[in-house]
């Protein structure tokens, strides 16, 4: 039984390593924030993400990678419909070619001077 589990695991890794060579076009990201409550839901295509960026910011941003570090930056609106900017920096570790875990600090600041800054722990799914 042990052998079967080990062989299955190694097969999974080798298949994943192979598929990791392909660039996945779409992804979804979900994160927990303060008190480990839901804080962000984003859907992405290539190196763009849109959705609930943090608990006080809705918008989209461009992702720029540097190794396993990334930066997200883009426009947002808050719940008062005031325009602003959102930025975040984080680290991402990819596994099996289709999933990853992320840790991110971010802030969204709108022109009406309301802002939301959060620390997120999240996961992404690529397909």
């Amino acid at each position: 039984m042990k052998k079967i589990i080990i062989i299955s695991f190694l097969s999974l890794i080798s298949i994943s390593s192979f598929s990791a060579q392909e660039e996945k076009l779409f992804h979804a990201y979900g994160a927990l924030g303060e008190i480990y409550g839901p804080a962000s839901v984003r859907f992405g295509m290539s190196e763009w993400e849109a959705g609930l960026l943090n608990r006080g910011s809705i918008g989209f941003g461009g992702l720029t990678y540097k190794g396993n570090q990334y930066l997200i930056f883009g426009p947002m609106i808050n719940y008062n419909a005031s325009l602003g900017l959102f930025a975040g920096v984080g680290v991402e570790w990819r596994f099996f070619g289709f999933t990853s875990i992320r840790a991110e600090v971010n802030t969204g600041h709108a022109l009406d001077n309301y802002s939301a800054s959060e620390v997120h722990l999240g996961a992404s799914l690529y397909w």
Binding site: G33, I35, Y36, G84, S115, S117, V119, H120
Partner: peptide, 10 residues
């Protein structure tokens, strides 16, 4: 639990 006293600025 990821709760901080945040201060931000633009």
């Amino acid at each position: 639990v990821l709760s901080f006293q945040n201060t931000s600025s633009i």
